[in-house]
Structure formats: structure tokens, C-alpha cells
Design a protein around this nucleic acid. Structure first.
Length: 426
RNA sequence: GGAGUGAUGGCCGAGUAGGUCGAAGGCGCUCGCCUGCUAAGCGAGUAUACGCCCAAAAGCGUAUCGACGGUUCGAAUCCGUCUCACUCCGCCA
């Protein structure tokens, strides 16, 4: 389950409005309600029959024990059992259809999310840092990187294929340094560092909402129910899947470093050069499991944790709020953090911070108990990148480039680079 | 990869010639009693999901003994498939 079927039953209009705000067809809600009704009708009947059968079974057992004859009851129960079998089947298929439909429904946007049709309607929240001015035409990061000998795209394509890269020398070191630096900052923010497996099973992907709907965005292992993770969100959010946490464990904060694998189906022709859109990239992902009443305030602090990296690296960025028309299907509210790329003369997404409320928690059966005696409740889950390493490298190169082709590194990175302050011009 | 053993409630652990078992017992936990304090002791309680009812609570019902399927009037108990864990062998970083 993903949306609460009881909430839909109680307030179908709210959900119809949610669909409409997302520019999707609200009549799907009526399909859900019809299926739900059918399922409950059959369920009530089959449960009634089972109650009859259970009673009769007790009688039969008692008679047998007393060495009495029970053949007439047994005969009668044969008929009831056949009915149960048939009804069970229709309950099962109605339930399956309902679950399948619910799994495909998107989450309901939060009331505070601005209405809009597309990304053009996203709302600028704030700009931080000075956009640098160059006395020369700033180069794109891929030209810089290849000239500096720290990125070898041609050979990466030979070894694997397009949309893969290979870092070399100080480039490889920069990748490593950034991962280390980001993890250090985020653990200081109270996140527990996690290094997960890069392959997850289908149940985990259903838990986070990547399946069943978005299977074609991932790489699947042939013949196995395993996928290369498209983000460390998968292992981090599923860490406590099917568990009940105690309230004092909340908020759970994980920072996971991993490669992320994306098939990029449907993005042919977009960002074909450089480090912006790859089949594999590394990032530090932040995941929080929180008490429901705190999730929107946790979302704000999540954005702060992500942008802190850019503050320290002195890279200019902006934060935008995503409108209903551009909101991903799992999210109730989302902010994107975008870093300035001088060559493209525009901001590009480097982190995306979202609240899912209980959407993933329902799917992953991820609950907590307020105190010993209270019933389990679903947690709220959030995540955001903190940050994507490849895009950070692109930003460092483009913003730090100097006339002679060398690149000045952010001061905070120097200790992680073994004292290197500048990647020297070739 | 080969051979074997196993999977029961928060934990440990009974229960296999099928019958009133959601499941003995212990531990833990909660509440109460008792006790200068603590410890011990005594009593009661202690799963989850869904449906019905409903303002809510209570109540009623169904399901759940790794998962799925089968046999049967009836399965924790029998049969099949799968998953996972452990042990030994092989292989390997």
C-alpha cells in the first residue's frame, strides 16, 4: 500500500484534488473506491463462511473425540469449503488489483506546495554566493578536465560505453576527497555514515517507490530480482524496513556514500557531454526517518545540511521550491538545490531534498511506537543528496578555472587533496 | 558449487500418529500490592494486520508458527517449491 486506503475512503475529494493539482486524472480515485468496495464485500462474506467452518470444525472434533458419527457435518462442510475456496479467489484478485492500483498512485502534494504546470513554475527561494565574473570565456568542465588530464571520457567509452567516465590522477583524488569531505561534514551534522551494497532487491525498490512504476529507469541484473541502486536512498530508507522503532530512536539520520546507477531512459540527447548526466555517478545521500509532526521542519534542516557543503566550498547556488506540476510522484514537497555553472550560465541541480511523509513508510512497513503502550505508527521519510560528487566536480572546475587553464580548488578541500591548492595547467 | 541441519510471539524455548493452539513454560517489559532503601516476593497484563460496528472506546469476526502453493471438514503439525541462517567440503579477494 502506498496511500492510506482508509484515508481515501474517508476523504476521496482530498485525493481527487491532489491528483488534479498534479495535472493527473482524478477519476482514478473512483476506480480505487470501486475496487475497494468490491474487495470488502467479498471479504465480509468469506469471513462469515470461515466463521461457520471454524465452529463446525470444533463440533466435528468434539464428536470424533466422543466417538460419535460426524459424517453429515463433514459432508456439509465440504460444500462450505468449496464456496470459501471460490470466494477466497475473488477476494485475492480484487485485493491484488487494488494494491496494484494503489502502488501506482502518486503521493498527495502538501498544501504549501505552489501550483504549477511545469518546471517553469518552480519558485525561487534564495540565492547564495557570488556568481563569479571572468575576464575570459569560461570553459565547460569537460574541456577543462580533459585538458588537465583528470578525466578520460574517450577511454571510459571504450571500456564501457557512452555516459560513463573515468577519473584519473588528481581527478580521481578529487572524487575521493569530495566524498570524504562530504561525509565528514554530514556526520558532524549528526548523520550516521553508511556504506551500503550497490545492489538491492525488488522488495526494497518497492519500499522506496521505484517499483513497480519506474523499473525502466534502473539497471536490472539479468535473471535476478536485483537492481543496481539508482541512489543510496534505497538501502538507507530500507534499512529499517518491516521494523518497529522506538520513539527515542527518532530522528534516524543516515548519510550513505555510494555509486548511483541510472539507465537515463528517455534522456537521449540531453547533457550528452561532461559529468552532468551519467549512467554511474557517486554521491552522498542523506536519509531521515522522523516523527510525522516534525517532517516539514526536518525538510528545512535537510536543505540546510545539503547547502552547507556548497557554503563551505564557496560555490554559488540557489534553492528552488518545486511546483505541483514538476513534483515527483513519491514526494509531497521538494526543494532543489542548484549550483552555478559559469559555462552554461545557469544553475544546475546538485541536490534534491524531499519529504515523502508516510508514502515510503507504508510501502516499506516502516513504523515507530510513541511509547510502550501505543500502537505503531508510520514514520515520515525524507531524503536529499548531500551532494552529488560528479556535479560538484563540474562546479568546482568551472567556477575555479583561471585564465591559464589551471583550477583553483576550494580551501576546505586542500587538506583532503594532500595540500594541493591548484590543479596545474597542462 | 556439493553435502547436511535448521527457521515458532520482544528474546529463549515447548509443541510433529492433523482437531477447541494465537500457540505451554521461562526471561524481559507494563501496571498494582508488599517491603526502611535496593534486591527479592505476590497479583494482573503484555503481538500484528484487516474487515464489521462506531463519534470514540468496547465488542464481534478473519488471518498470521520463514514465504508461497497443495492435501483435508479441519494444518504450527502431512506433501511440494522457494527464501534465509548455520556446519562441513570445494573455490575465491
Amino acid at each position: 500500500m502506498m496511500l492510506d486506503i482508509r484515508a481515501i475512503r474517508a476523504n476521496p475529494d482530498e485525493f481527487r484534488i491532489g491528483m488534479t493539482r498534479r495535472r493527473m486524472d482524478p477519476t482514478i480515485i473512483d476506480k480505487v473506491l470501486a475496487l475497494d468496495e468490491e474487495w470488502r464485500k467479498d471479504l465480509a462474506e468469506v469471513e462469515r463462511l470461515k466463521a461457520v467452518r471454524n465452529k463446525a470444525s470444533e463440533d466435528i472434533a468434539r464428536k470424533k473425540k466422543a466417538k460419535e458419527d460426524a459424517t453429515s457435518e463433514i459432508e456439509e462442510m465440504k460444500k462450505v469449503s468449496d464456496e470459501i475456496k471460490a470466494l477466497d479467489e475473488s477476494v485475492r484478485s480484487a485485493d491484488e488489483a487494488l494494491k496494484a492500483l494503489l502502488l501506482e498512485l502518486p503521493n498527495k502534494p502538501h498544501d504549501s506546495v505552489p501550483d504549477g504546470l511545469s518546471e517553469d513554475d518552480n519558485v525561487d527561494m534564495r540565492h547564495v554566493g557570488e556568481v563569479p565574473h571572468f575576464s575570459f570565456d569560461p570553459l565547460p568542465h569537460w574541456d577543462l578536465a580533459e585538458a588537465l588530464g583528470i578525466l578520460d571520457i574517450e577511454r571510459a567509452v571504450k571500456i564501457t560505453g557512452s555516459r560513463f567516465v573515468l577519473y584519473k590522477g588528481l581527478g580521481a583524488r578529487l572524487e575521493r576527497a569530495l566524498a570524504s569531505f562530504m561525509l565528514d561534514v554530514q556526520t558532524e551534522h549528526g548523520y550516521t555514515e553508511i556504506f551500503p551494497a550497490f545492489i538491492a532487491n525488488d522488495a526494497s525498490l518497492v519500499g522506496t517507490g521505484n517499483l513497480p512504476k519506474f523499473g525502466d529507469e534502473m539497471f536490472k541484473l539479468e535473471g535476478l530480482p536485483y537492481y543496481l541502486i539508482p541512489t543510496a536512498e534505497i538501502p538507507l530508507t530500507n534499512y529499517y524496513r518491516d521494523e518497529i522503532l522506538s520513539a527515542d530512536m527518532l530522528p534516524v539520520k543516515f548519510a550513505g556514500y555510494s555509486s548511483s546507477f541510472r539507465s537515463e531512459a528517455g534522456s537521449a540527447g540531453k547533457d550528452t557531454r561532461g559529468l552532468i548526466r551519467l549512467h554511474q555517478f557517486q554521491k552522498v545521500e542523506l536519509v531521515k526517518l522522523v516523527a510525522p509532526e516534525t517532517s516539514y521542519q526536518e525538510l528545512e534542516s535537510l536543505v540546510d545540511d545539503a547547502t552547507r557543503i556548497l557554503d563551505i566550498l564557496e560555490l554559488p547556488y540557489r534553492v528552488i521550491e518545486i511546483c505541483t506540476g514538476d513534483l515527483g510522484s513519491k514526494e509531497t514537497k521538494k526543494y532543489d538545490v542548484e549550483v552555478w555553472l559559469p559555462n552554461q550560465k545557469r544553475y544546475r541541480e546538485i541536490s534534491s531534498c524531499s519529504n515523502f511523509e508516510d508514502y515510503q513508510a507504508r510501502r516499506a512497513n516502516l513504523r515507530f511506537r510513541r511509547d510502550e503502550t501505543s500502537r505503531p505508527e508510520f514514520v515520515h521519510t525524507l531524503n536529499g543528496s548531500g551532494l552529488a560528487v560528479g556535479r560538484t566536480i563540474a562546479a568546482i572546475l568551472e567556477n575555479g578555472q583561471q585564465q591559464d587553464g589551471s583550477v583553483r580548488l576550494p580551501k576546505a578541500l586542500v587538506p583532503y587533496m594532500g595540500g594541493v591548492e591548484v590543479i596545474p595547467a597542462p
